[in-house]
Write a protein that binds this DNA or RNA. Structure first.
Lengths: 113, 113
DNA sequence: TGGCATTACCTAGACGATCTAGGTAATGGC
DNA sequence: GCCATTACCTAGATCGTCTAGGTAATGCCA
């Protein structure tokens, strides 16, 4: 009974953009590497599925927060390299601030005595 | 340009259930009061719209995590009182743990040097 | 008496985002 | 020759929030 068929990562909703932007703020990268970075950095606590990743990257590009260019990965393979734009950096700051407010609020309620 | 027409609280996705369960763990309450409590507890950082609140309560009831009963509010008005079930308490514990993992992960990425 | 804010609930449809589950293609180890 | 890995792409299902409407009762105030 306990296992309800719920979306495995509903919480990711709205936070993924900020995560991607943050990773790209460390320097240009390609989608696959962004996902691997997030997973590794969180000890697999956050899994980024490709069906969420690529649509998110197109979304960010469409909004002018990242720019894409074909190039090669560290392993010498064909890869689309994403780079944070100036607007993207502004957006990142804002999303970080929003996240801080939100998570503080949730914690206030969830961890109240 | 900066203002994109984004859903005001996409982050709430997946966290609302936990918030409601937590508020109800303090004792039975009605929907309207739950929303007011969350808003007041977070200094209006978290706004719970009624169009999210009531569907969420039905969802929780359908899953057996809360039980509803008609009664009266503190102001003597007709109100539907929700009470946490045993299954709801278990679910709350699990959702709090999930939230902790998730928010820790996001913070690791967003607040990394 | 009338008007209005507040309390309290309800709901249809729009919208947005993740996930499932498939696919392509090239590389390199065994 | 086979298979895991790297790397990208996408349609459709699914789920949850929000918009924007609605009902109804109470109590204040002019």
């Amino acid at each position: 009974m306990a296992g309800s068929p719920k979306s495995p990562n509903a919480l990711l909703h709205g936070a993924l953009d900020a995560l991607i932007l943050k990773v790209l703020s460390r320097g240009p990268s390609h989608g696959y590497a962004v996902a691997r970075f997030i997973e590794e950095a969180t000890g697999d606590a956050l899994l980024v599925e490709e069906g969420s990743l690529y649509p998110a990257l197109y979304r960010l590009e469409r909004r002018g927060w990242v720019e894409a260019e074909w190039g090669t990965s560290e392993l010498g393979r064909r890869a689309k390299l994403y780079r944070l734009t100036a607007a993207g950096r502004t957006q990142l700051d804002q999303e970080v601030a929003t996240w801080r407010q939100f998570s503080t609020g949730v914690s206030k309620v969830l961890f109240a005595s």
